[in-house]
Nucleic acid binder design. Sequence first.
DNA 1: CCGTTTGATGACCCGCGGGTCATCAAGCGT
DNA 2: ACGCTTGATGACCCGCGGGTCATCAAACGG
Lengths: 211, 211
Amino acid sequence: MDDTAISRPPRRRRKDARPAEIIDAGLREFAEKGFAGARLEDVARRAGIAKGTIYRYFADKEALFLAAARARVVPVFDDADAFVEAFAGSTRELLRLIVTQIYGRLVETDLRVLIRIVLAEGAIFPSLTEHYHREAIVRGRRLLDRIVARGIARGEVRPGPAADLPIVIVAPAIVASIWKMAFDRLDPIATERFLAAHLDLVCEGLLVHGR
Amino acid sequence: MDDTAISRPPRRRRKDARPAEIIDAGLREFAEKGFAGARLEDVARRAGIAKGTIYRYFADKEALFLAAARARVVPVFDDADAFVEAFAGSTRELLRLIVTQIYGRLVETDLRVLIRIVLAEGAIFPSLTEHYHREAIVRGRRLLDRIVARGIARGEVRPGPAADLPIVIVAPAIVASIWKMAFDRLDPIATERFLAAHLDLVCEGLLVHGR
DNA sequence: CCGTTTGATGACCCGCGGGTCATCAAGCGT
DNA sequence: ACGCTTGATGACCCGCGGGTCATCAAACGG
């Protein structure tokens, strides 16, 4: 009784749709298993294709990952840049909205796996690290620098060591992402609680008081 | 010309010293390559033993890692607990000293690899996550809770969402550890700068002002 | 309709590395 | 000195998974 032979759909050429399907399947597997732990056999199954087909579109596993990461990261920063560009309110409100967006688009989504993967596998695959640095870190830091400079110019941000290294401002969100990935199953902490603590710390710690 | 055959030291039994030597070698390999990337062949070479010898002392790779992690983590928390217990000064000073210690004993040492490894491999090896949670996270959080409660009782810490979730207080150090591991080569940020920004943010963000 | 192109398949290759175990020999006890 | 115990060795096993490629067949163009 071979069910596989009966129920298997006939092969179909779907050249235009395939890359995105493979990327999506890849990102899911990378999210669950990490880069090394994700098997291309599983990616292929998820995408409904044969493993060899992956190589028609991506040179190798790393190329698939890079494509998947890029597809996810670029829109996020494009949106954030546009948002900050257009924003006209107080720095407190801007921080609140940006930090909230970080939670909505990083902490609570599978984009957070990039943190895991780069940290975990970056030493073995330096190109992952370089790529992520270029696509996400440089852009993220530039955005934070911009928010801080704007705040200082408006007299709303207190100059000091924290304003000079704004990456510390988003550190709680990074830790929340790590928590969600590694410990939430054992020891749940609601995202809202991280967000509230984060905003509390950063608004009190960075802003000029009373502003 | 086989140099190996001439220069190889005779086998010697060193049962009592071996476990620590293997642990030390293991931790170094795990630090460089991550858990999955570290090869027991390399651990053995580093320890000056044959690979099979590792299995005389540790059931498998995971057992080696757990032993290595434990050997490193437990003393750090023992010291920190004792320090906080004995400390009689202001919360500002206590935070300064504890955060500085975190940088000295985590960010700047190979202990930071535990973050990487748990994050990377925890999904595949749940026992790693559980172990680390029990040994490090629970203790760490308890210590932070204690510092905050002490500070609130002395009127030095501002109650609020950040005080309710003190893990955000050490988030910059976690991010600094990640930075050191993943990005420092591409984009160096001096530890002192992280430390200054961290203390600036946390002292301003958490402490009652003027205290 | 038919020949050609090319997207899709899955059996297979092969290097990698965790783990095994027969053999060796250090060291102890008598 | 010798037999026994047990720590150490390294050749080997074998499963895993990334990548290959001969074969198939969908789809296009004449």
